[in-house]
Amino acid sequence: MAVNKELVVGEILDSIENYNFSERQAIKQIIKKYKITDWKIRGAIHALTFEIIRKLNGIDEIIKYSLKDRSSFQRIKLTIKNLLRVGVYEIKFMDKVPAQITNEIVEITKQKFGKKKSKFVNALLKSIEKIGLGEIEDQLIESKRLSFKYFHPNWYIEYLEKLLDKESVIAFLEENNKIPQVYLRANTLKIQINKLIEILKNNSVDLEQDPNFPEIIKVIRSKKPVTRIKSYKKGLYYIQTKSSAVVTHVLDPQPNELILDICA
């Protein structure tokens, strides 16, 4: 049976808000509900969910801007609101045909809530299709404009503006929006680093070994998620930021020392 990605992600967003689940808990629960085993589909659902959450304040601003009464946003039924969020993200931030996305979201709404609600969703998304992001930016005050453009909460922008000049605030936000580099840390208690590198390359992972910290591997690209490789399930490596991995070198633990990790 074909999986409707928009429906699944809408339900994941519902679970996060209704039950206070973490993103990963909600994804795991809904993927299990629909018995999705294809890792490519699971990966697409995971990526779409996290990107919508990352851009949520901007997506919501687009929806509010398109409503006749901004305050009516709060009265939209949560499930419909989340379907709208999925639709807005795909229309505005993905290389997809807007009309096709609108039709998909409208059809889901019709099946779940009937024709009347689907007409509302159809009218709203068709309006959003025609709106340029610059048009929305232009009517916002500076802090809200930066919040909308860089997808950070307005309170956070105002906090940064108290600490930094405008140029530094923008530079900080741009850097913060970059996709973080993926690093792996070899579990040298279970495998030698050279052997692990060989295994990863055989699994179509393009990588670089860190010149200063040999157990740290920088992932350039991977044919499939590194969490789907058997070596990961065997505990031969961990996904860990380079800064976290470097801590052990700085700490330089010695035999018989008791070390507590209380960062989490």
Rank of each mutant, 00 (worst) to 15 (best):
A2I: 14
N4P: 01
E6M: 14
V8R: 03
G10L: 01
I12F: 06
D14W: 12
E23Q: 15
I27Q: 13
K40H: 06
I41K: 05
G43T: 00
A44N: 12
H46T: 08
L48F: 10
K55T: 13
L67V: 05
L67K: 09
D69R: 01
S71G: 01
L78I: 05
I80K: 04
I80A: 05
G87L: 08
E90H: 11
A99G: 00
Q100C: 03
N103H: 06
K117H: 12
F120T: 05
I131G: 07
L133I: 12
I136W: 08
I136K: 08
E137F: 08
E137I: 04
I141A: 11
K144E: 15
R145L: 03
L146A: 04
S147I: 02
K149V: 08
F151N: 03
W155G: 11
Y159H: 15
E167K: 15
V169T: 03
E175A: 14
N177E: 10
P180N: 07
L184R: 01
L184G: 05
R185N: 09
N187A: 07
I193K: 12
N203I: 05
L207V: 08
D210K: 06
P211V: 01
P211T: 04
N212I: 01
E215D: 15
I216P: 04
I217D: 05
K223Q: 11
K233T: 09
K233D: 11
G235A: 09
G235Q: 09
I239V: 08
T241K: 14
T241M: 12
S244F: 15
S244C: 14
V247R: 13
V250A: 15
L251T: 10
I262C: 01
C263V: 00
